[in-house]
Design a protein around this nucleic acid. Sequence first.
DNA 1: TTGACCCAAGTGGTCCGACCACATCCATGG
DNA 2: CCATGGATGTGGTCGGACCACTTGGGTCAA
Lengths: 238, 238
Amino acid sequence: MDEPRQGGGAAPKGTVTQRAIERIKAMIGEGLLEPGQRLPTERDLAAQLGISRSSMREAIRALTVLGVLEARHGSGIYVTQLQAGDLLETFGVVADLSRGPRLVELLEVRRILESTATALAAARITPAQLAVVEGHLAAMNATEDPEEILAHDLAFHRAIAEAAGNETMAAILEGLSSRTFRARVWRGYREEGAFDRTRREHAAIHRALAAHDPEAARAAAAAHVGEVEEWLRAQVGS
Amino acid sequence: MDEPRQGGGAAPKGTVTQRAIERIKAMIGEGLLEPGQRLPTERDLAAQLGISRSSMREAIRALTVLGVLEARHGSGIYVTQLQAGDLLETFGVVADLSRGPRLVELLEVRRILESTATALAAARITPAQLAVVEGHLAAMNATEDPEEILAHDLAFHRAIAEAAGNETMAAILEGLSSRTFRARVWRGYREEGAFDRTRREHAAIHRALAAHDPEAARAAAAAHVGEVEEWLRAQVGS
DNA sequence: TTGACCCAAGTGGTCCGACCACATCCATGG
DNA sequence: CCATGGATGTGGTCGGACCACTTGGGTCAA
């Protein structure tokens, strides 16, 4: 045994960068680092853990893309609010990089969550929130620009998910419906005249929300997502 | 030579590292990089994008923690299989870092997915898969070691999720039930004698699976997760 | 011939030092 | 009192050096 580390007891596993990542995550997990709090400088952190600034920077960059930390040029490094949106942003990457069968599976997950979220929204939605939903619905029907339609479509579902009262679920659904993901589906989808059907489905969802009818809302949402799901399933088969 | 950017038209947005990350993600998204394929060396990649090796390393590290790339010391950098498990590993971080109300929301999402997954499993499960589930159930009841119980509990639900036939959902559920997450819940939970109840709930789930009764399975799973959910909700309130 | 062994080249991992770009704070001066 | 400008500190980028590990081919003995 050449005892490469002094008696501290910490086993030297993996790369130093990986260890640094775990250390910082642990600090946050144990409450030593509060959301929004500012961390020591890269140089100080590196010195504290006995590693080089380069390695520490890689660790910080990794935690940055995970939505745990936020680096502000010239100011410092801060812990994010650790909101659902911060951490689940990476969920969009999954959707962007998924192909074939995996895409269908992803859509199946979305169908399950979206239908439940819509049902919850039907029970809880306030008049103000309903007005927002109606706004996006109207805007979506008032234009022919695909880009704009997509944006309002996304916002439409986002507003419903928020009305369900579960921020985490809303964030996951947003990631599942990332721009690229939706754009890919829309391409070549409108050609089959499914454009009007989408419009009708959205109207059905809105009707159920206005009537505060959870069961109808669940069915309408499930049908809406299921429609795309079936089409995609057929595409994958060919 | 000044010539900040030649006419290519690409706007220099954000940090060079961030751009490198996007570039590599785009290459994979467009199919230029296949799963399992080996990338050029860090030095070559850096040269291709006209950035330093340090910056390129940060980009690679970021994509590594996201489960998109895999670096093998002395061998090279490879694209992962991009399986659901690879990409959704980061989901565990969310569970580990969530606190209070967010934890309840997370558990609510799990309840929705787990109940649906269990229902699907009841309809599709094969005798062989059922045997695996029973194995973990028996092992769980045969020991008193919390560590071992937790492992088999996790495997129990994992096996059910796999039987549902949706790898993506199984991966998400696994992330939602990350080690730390479950351990935190168990601590101080057994004290209220809820230990036997968990055993009974698991038995109910198994019964529904064996009977191929989706509705019963859904109810049993929802009740199982909901039990923990309610307890946690009460804890947060205090 | 065949097999085990060893070494050299290539690759990721780590460290260092320098400089740049930007944000912030404070002394200065109106 | 407020606006201004510079000094300071911070993250961002760069280049080079060396270390640790893998890989493959060549050597040498059986």
